[in-house]
Design a protein around this nucleic acid. Structure first.
Lengths: 340, 340
DNA sequence: TGTTAGCACTCAAGATAAAAGAGTGCTAAT
DNA sequence: ATTAGCACTCTTTTATCTTGAGTGCTAACA
């Protein structure tokens, strides 16, 4: 716990470095700091901060750059806790509501908003990993051999898709599917929807097998989407950031592969949490990457995780309030959607 | 119409340049060409090709690079007309069929396949711009104030989404919507689905306005998606190509803005067509961009356009057959989907 | 007339050297 | 505890030289 002045200096270094991306020197700091002390004094303080591990020097005669530990301290103790301006909140709420007529894409739309707002890639993870059950399965025939399927889950997610069946969808086929769905699907936990399980169900369809099997596969896909699918929005931001661009491809591959799932398998964090660099990333190359994660609630229950992926040098003071607000807003809208 | 040998030289230059990205010199050509002539002779030929406008020189003492006109000539007259190997065709067909259980995403899936295959960004434009009508509108209630909507069009496209209504979806509301849809929606051309039109319809809903209006808006959105929405797949390829990367952002903005629509407003090309650089692009910065477009048919009727966007330096000999095949395959599958 | 060897010339790219500049760390004075 | 002063370090910039690929031209040759 450094002195008050050291803290001011650390904060200034983080902020200046975030703006320019260049190491910060004592002279520059002198201009910015409210304390009227000489550059030499600041140099002394900086030397001590460096000894404590909060600062690093790219080379002997360069300014200082915050270390991971420095960032961590800044975020945990020095970050001004701003709120978004109320007008902006209002505007965002309206935007999201306007797009919310489609429950199916609500999460994705929240991500889109977040990505635009923060100029980072947004991350939507619907599932909390616990106790997700099918609330309802609905089917509507669509021509002779197509049907629209919808799946509602206990966490308020809605998924639908159109499926083509292998043979004509007779009233009997629909009846068989309806019975199977009532008996075996509704109320079942989403993890249950594996290939073998669905196949065993399909076997019960008897003569209607060709029509019913694709439907069951469709339901399984919907379940998988509703349960596990993490979505990335605004990937191109990764490539547009100069700090991230060299590793952007690696990072994207990592996120799209199982890596992300593994990272988030413990479910949403309790509060807004900031993961810095490879502090918590398994991959070695991802030094300059930051993830900010926030949970959202559905009613009283835990929902999923909303987050952003961006460079280490990001405007935390803006990004964190934005994330907080959108996560809360999303939670509220999902909660509303649930009670009906 | 240059001599046979000039043509061989031009072809070799284009191919070598495409491989390496570096200007091609006379010595290098001598090694590659089947003719056993000296480098001096080749230099003479190159000088003449340059005078004809087929080649350019980055600077005096560098090799030659194909000019736009050179590329054009190569593509129009020199490109070997390859076919894809049958095994690959078969594999692709299987892959697309596997994903085709979802008619809604068929086009997108074809684009995905194309993007992977060519390592370019793929481009899917469903609409031919002519005579698209609503074939069928289907609704299925989903809980008290949600409904699943589906729209089938005469070109075989299927779109669905889930909509939340402003008030409960009573049987009467469904009845009103059904009547409106039967009378005014089915058979209507997609261009008709403007905001004013839908509002005038909603006005007829009377007391069920709150429930029916969102549904109508939903139908309008579906119509817009089915009709106009061009989709880009694999945008990240743009950023991964060294030749394109500096202008990738500009290009992406252009494609995502109205630019693309304007470019394709005349409907699909008659045959596979190659647009080179700013030969046909309105934007000045897009020098090194190539688009290859192919039409696909649905039954006997015109379908839409499938295409790729990539660097000038691409392997046309591979890309064009791939595009041709996938466009044809897509056409076949859409045609099949239509007859039911 | 078409082809080829030979050679001077050009120009980008790479290597090397020198100069500039930013910033530090230390010392000694306040 | 603070600060001015200064030597020192190391990157960045600039200038100069060298290298080498490739051309264009000329003159000889089949």
């Amino acid at each position: 716990m450094p002195s008050e002045r050291k803290r001011r200096i650390l904060a200034a270094i983080v902020e200046l470095y975030n703006e320019t991306g260049e190491p910060v020197g004592s002279k520059r700091l002198m201009e910015v700091l409210p304390d009227s002390v000489s550059s030499a004094t600041i140099r002394n303080e900086m030397a001590e901060l460096a000894e404590l591990g909060f600062l690093e020097q790219p080379h002997t005669s360069a300014g200082r750059v915050p270390s991971l530990q420095g960032y961590r301290y800044y975020i945990d103790h020095l970050l001004p806790q701003l709120e978004m301006p109320p007008e902006q909140k209002k505007a965002l709420e309206e935007q999201l509501r306007a797009r919310a007529r489609e429950p199916e894409r609500l999460l994705e739309n929240a991500g889109k908003l977040l990505a635009e707002l923060t100029a980072c890639t947004a991350l939507c993870v619907p599932c909390a990993g616990v106790e997700l059950r099918v609330k309802r399965v609905e089917i509507a025939p669509l021509g002779r051999s197509m049907a629209m399927l919808a799946l509602l889950t206990t966490n308020g997610a809605v998924k639908s898709k159109v499926i083509r069946t292998e043979s004509a969808l007779s009233p009997q086929a629909l009846e068989v599917f309806g019975a199977l769905s009532r008996e075996h699907l509704v109320g079942a936990p989403l993890e249950l929807f594996t290939q073998p399980f669905l196949q065993s169900l399909a076997a019960k369809a008897g003569t209607e097998f060709l029509a019913v099997a694709p439907l069951l596969i469709g339901v399984a896909e919907l379940a998988r989407e509703a349960a596990g699918q993490e979505v990335l929005v605004g990937e191109s931001h990764l490539f547009q950031n100069p700090q991230l661009e060299p590793q952007a491809k690696t990072l994207l591959d990592f996120l799209q592969s199982a890596g992300l799932a593994r990272l988030l398998q413990d479910g949403p964090p309790a509060h807004v949490s900031v993961l810095l660099g490879n502090e918590s990333f398994p991959l070695p190359d991802l030094r300059d990457v930051t993830m900010v994660l926030a949970p959202y609630a559905i009613g009283a229950a835990q929902g999923g995780t909303l987050g952003i992926v961006g460079p280490l040098r990001m405007d935390f003071a803006k990004v964190i309030p934005a994330l907080k607000f959108i996560a809360a807003l999303l939670g509220r809208m999902l909660t509303q959607g649930l009670e009906e």
